[in-house]
Nucleic acid binder design. Structure first.
Lengths: 350, 350
DNA sequence: TTGTAGGCGTTATCAC
DNA sequence: GTGATAACGCCTACAA
């Protein structure tokens, strides 16, 4: 039965009748006489020795931890990132420290500053908004940081971006090819990174494919189901001739709300109104009709971010140029725009 | 501009012209002469000093970290736990280390053993299966552990349980009250904790409410959408008189698969077949018809587990009896059994 | 009030 | 090959 207090190399050294240096050597596989090795291993075994990672970290100044900071893990987009990041880090021998900051900018900055405490060797962060304070903290960060989300050119850290512009273009082109011309757009808040970029993408995309943008068909609310419902009600309020024949929703939750109201009004989807969501979360496949959705590649963004960070960590000779990676979007066509009616198998088994 | 190498209390001491002890005292708010305090704070400020948490941990033998280990964060049940655990720990000043073990029992045991490395002050774990090895490791754990999921009586650690028995009873009673008698059951693997307990709960529940259990209406597969679809097809294969008039599905994903096939066959839900899921995930509200689902209180289980652990951590005088907490289930009635047709707002905004 | 010194558990550099 | 011994950065008796 192993003793209950924690054995250290000193304990083992005494027990085995050697010096702590020899114990350390054995435990680290350095050359040692056979007999010594045996004695040490036997003692370690019988005492139930486990190396203390904190002491190791102090000596090596490496924690073997990487932090990942996001606004809310409940958001499927961040969850998708996390699911990719986790195994990549584990594979490389790093533990994952998870920070969920809430919609609080200060907490986000706090995480950035917290790096100075050296509890982690690096950080992956997907900021809600990028303020000058963010850039200042990134500048002075004492450990490698990778940012998921767009950063101004010339920013000092590695950066993994989505391409919502192209993603929205794909969706609009799909709708145009289906003969739709009166495209409604339901967005989240314009003072968030995704809200603003999706708004810009919608405007650019409409122009790109030569469609007329009717401001009456553009609604802004929250990234929630309720917004989708309310906006859709509003869009269906006036003259039928003015109704949209397609809706682009800035995320899947909004699209679900839109579907609720279309169903309630007896409008057929996609025959009368086609609906497209964004982010391609599990909800898209769960809804009925299943939702066509633009994927901005969250999973891949997570994976790429983790790889960039590991790369930095592996190469101590830093000073390299910050790298920018842009992940390709993709369009997943399902029943809500007339695509495949066979449901795909959801992602998360139990 | 702060120097780029890391200032330590030694650096500050030199810069301020005092001893490291004084620096430490100032930083920890111990009584110091005013002038000293000023000098030290000024030096710390201008050098951009941040205390090194590793060194602190080595000295204090507290890491201010808590580990949370689950099979897969993609599983909404574990995600719900995580979402509750995280803020509770943060509030108490602990960082969260996340382990996703995959379906691998060895990795799970590895996490338990890893506690010996002292990288965390405590652990919350929700094991896939509880083997004798698990119990042995729990016995010798060097830090407080809380297990989410049932443990044999007399196990040495705190334990937060679901009550699937009562949850299933609620669902079956609901179906019986709707006049349903031929209840089908679609389950996941029987060699998993949830699979086994849900099977037992179904059998007990049918007995409890005086309904006849027809083994032909019981199907076992995976906890996936495909299983729901396949089982439902099989259940609808024979004589119409033998078809079930209600389906209890062991999780929401299975229920979605059942809905797919019922829709494909033109069977009305709930009029011809009522459907109930389990776990009450976001998918339940997203589906159409929205899914009635049994919640086993994952969120609350997470919260309670975190509280139990904090409790242990706060009270160094340990040796207290292990505590067992059982969380009440609840039934969320929606359209798939004739409940409210108004969709609720999904959980995760963006 | 302040400084010196020892120790938390490891690793690594010396001599022997 | 092995054993003292000095760090790593911090806290804290103890002595001044």
């Amino acid at each position: 039965m192993p003793s209950h207090s924690n054995p250290t190399i000193t304990t083992i050294a005494e027990s085995a009748g050697v010096s702590i240096a020899s114990v350390s050597r054995v435990l680290n596989g350095l050359p040692v006489r056979d007999a010594t090795e045996r004695k040490v291993l036997a003692a370690a075994q019988s005492l139930g020795y486990v190396p203390n990672s904190v002491a190791r970290s102090l000596k090596s100044s490496r924690t073997n931890q990487v932090a990942f900071a996001i606004e809310d893990i409940g958001n499927p987009v961040y969850l998708a990132m996390l699911r990719e990041i986790q195994p990549v880090l584990k594979q490389a021998g790093y533990r994952l420290v998870l920070h969920s900051t809430g919609a609080d900018l200060d907490e986000e900055l706090e995480v950035l500053r917290g790096l100075g405490q050296r509890y982690a060797d690096g950080l992956i962060i997907s900021p809600i908004r990028v303020t000058p304070e963010h850039l200042a903290e990134l500048e002075r960060a004492t450990a490698p940081v990778v940012v998921i989300g767009s950063l101004p050119d010339g920013s000092p850290v590695d950066n993994v971006r989505a391409d919502s512009r192209t993603g929205v273009e794909m969706a609009l082109r799909h709708l145009r090819d289906l003969g739709r011309r009166r495209i409604g757009f339901v967005n989240g808040p314009l003072d968030t990174v995704p809200g603003r970029s999706r708004d810009a993408a919608f405007r650019a995309g409409m122009r790109r494919w030569g469609m007329v943008l009717d401001e009456d068909l553009v609604h802004v609310g929250a990234f929630r189901r309720r917004t989708g419902a309310e906006a859709t009600r509003a869009l269906l309020a006036g003259d039928a001739a003015a109704h949209p024949d397609a809706l682009l929703c800035a995320n899947d939750l909004i699209a679900l709300g839109a579907l609720d109201v279309l169903r309630e009004r007896g409008l057929r989807v996609p025959e009368e109104v086609a609906v497209v969501g964004m982010d391609d979360t599990d909800l898209a496949a769960a809804s009925w009709p299943a939702l066509t959705s633009v994927s901005l590649g969250s999973a891949e963004r997570g994976r790429r971010a983790a790889q960039l960070l590991l790369d930095r960590l592996a190469d101590p000779g830093s000073g390299r140029e910050p790298r920018v990676v842009t992940v390709e979007p993709s369009l997943h066509v399902r029943a809500s725009t007339g695509g495949d009616r066979v449901a795909d198998d959801g992602a998360a088994p139990r």
